[in-house]
Each structure stands twice: as structure tokens, then as C-alpha cells.
Amino acid sequence: MKKFQNKVCLVTGASSGIGKATAVAFAESGAKVIVSDVNETAGMATVSELVALGAEAIFVKCNIAERAEVQNLINQSIEKFGRIDCAVLSAGIAGRLSLPTHEYPEDEWLNQIHVNLIGTWYCIKFLLEEMLKQGGGNIVSIASAAGLRGQPNNSPYATSKHGVVGLVKTAAIEYATKNIRINAICPTAIETPMIMEGRRKLAYNPEALEAAKNYQAMKRMGQPSEVADVALWLCSDEASFMTGHALPVDGGAFA
């Protein structure tokens, strides 16, 4: 029997990168999957891949920074499947700029906070309401290595991800006796569109790419599937005594 057979699993940010890899991994493990993203075209493409794998999957468009859209996402998921057993919160944005804190534009700074931190709180808030009703569940938030240490010239991102780690740890304590486990994953350099095309343009900057690789003890970029595997493990009964962790997936960078 597949590990997540008959489980209902929600993945935000599931149109690419870590979110998409996680949705695929859940589907391959027998889950029914709710795919969510702001990018409807790419999100529907993910659903098509999951259906081709034999999974039952739906797409719900959602900008997690909008409270009403998150509530709609949870409501549609419950309406379709009756419950949400596991949720991996991968939706987030990276900054486009590299600037010291006092020079960072206010609108750019606040936008990252709204999506990465407030949006994650909306997701966790509404998921908890349903998981309390159904008697339990698992939530994994994709934070970042930037949630564990400072990241110069990227203060809004580091601040938002530190906030996510604090949120996860606090909620994990609050619901530890309610059969709800809440953890975070803190990846370093993972080969996703966000990091390859984003602020540091690693896809076009060989020196920056080499520096990113060298930051890891393994001297390579991580793959989205390697983070997805950890997310599924945290959602599984194999991690039944783990809650409140901010788990580095870092190729030895923090060793």
C-alpha cells in the first residue's frame, strides 16, 4: 500500500520548483492532491501530470497574501474531499533586489512580508481550524536557510522567513496535544526557477552559481525532489514524534 493512499494533501506554490515536486511525490505515494498557485496555467499543467500518474487532483487558484483567497482554497478543498490530512506550504516569493536594509524600497519590503509571512499565517490559521474539527493533521511550511541566519542585502526575505520559523514553532507547541504536527523546512540553494531566475540570476551568472554551490559542503545545488522527500517524511507517521522543527536541507552548509 502506498504511504499516502487515501490521504488528502494540499500543496501551495505547486506550479513549479519545490511545490510541484512535492505535489508529484504525494501523487506517486497515493494521495489525493489539491494543487494551488497564482499561476493558473502552470498549476493546471501540474494537475495534468498528477492525473497522468493515476492520482485524483484538482487546481485552486490562490494568492496566499489575500485572506479571502486562502479561505476559499481551504473551503474548496474541504468541499471536494471532506478533509485535509497534510499540507505543504511552498508558496512564496523572493526579492528582486539586493540592497542594504535602509535602502530597500518600502513597497518591495512589505510585499515579501505580506506573501511569505502573512500569507503563510493565513494558510496555517485556516488549516488549523479544519484540522481541529477533523481530529488532526500535518502542516509543513517551506521556510528557508534565510530563516535561520541573516542574509545581507536581502532583509525582507530573511525577516519573513524568520517569522515563518517563529510561527511554526509557536503553533507547534499550541497544538501538540491536538494530534496536529507543524514543522518547517529550511533549504539552502535548491535548483528552482525562483533562485535560478531571481535576485542573483544564477542561471546567467556563473560566478554566483559557483558561489551558491560552494556554500554547501556537498558543493552542488539541491534538487526540488530532495526537499519534497523531506516534506513527505515530515507528513508521514515515520516522523510522528517530530513537531516544531525548522529542519535545514542544506547539503551540509550549516554543519
Rank of each mutant, 00 (worst) to 15 (best):
G92K: 10
K2D: 12
V24K: 01
A203H: 08
L232M: 05
S141L: 02
P193A: 03
A31Q: 02
E238G: 14
L73A: 07
I173F: 08
Y157F: 15
L209Y: 15
Q223G: 01
L209N: 04
A217E: 12
C235L: 02
D37M: 05
G135V: 06
V35D: 03
A172W: 05
T192M: 08
K201H: 14
L50T: 03
F26I: 07
K169C: 00
S98E: 14
T22D: 07
N111D: 11
E69N: 09
G166S: 13
L167H: 07
R149H: 11
H162Q: 04
S236G: 13
G166R: 14
S155W: 07
E226N: 02
I34W: 08
S98I: 08
W233A: 00
N179E: 11
C186K: 04
N154W: 03
A25L: 15
I113S: 10
I118H: 05
P156Q: 12
I190Q: 01
K125Q: 15
I173S: 08
G251A: 14
M218L: 15
D250W: 08
C186N: 10
F26W: 04
V140D: 00
E210P: 01
S29H: 07
Y122D: 04
G54P: 05
V33N: 03
A31N: 00
N183R: 12
G251D: 10
A176F: 01
L99N: 10
A171T: 13
N39S: 14
N179P: 00
I58C: 10
A45Q: 13
G135M: 11
M218C: 08
H162G: 05
K201Y: 02
N75L: 08
G147I: 04
I64T: 13
P156A: 09
A31K: 01
Y122W: 15
T46P: 00
N153G: 00
S15H: 05
F254A: 13
P248W: 10
G137M: 12
A203N: 10
E108Q: 13
F241T: 10
A57C: 13
A65V: 09
H114R: 14
K7P: 02
Q151H: 11
G92D: 08
I180K: 03
K7T: 02
L234Y: 05
I185A: 01
A255P: 07
Q76V: 12
A45G: 01
C86I: 02
Q112D: 06
Y157H: 14
E174D: 15
R67E: 15
H245L: 14
A68M: 09
R149G: 09
F254W: 12
I18H: 03
S155F: 11
A171Y: 05
L128C: 06
G13Y: 06
W109R: 04
K3T: 11
N154G: 11
G43E: 03
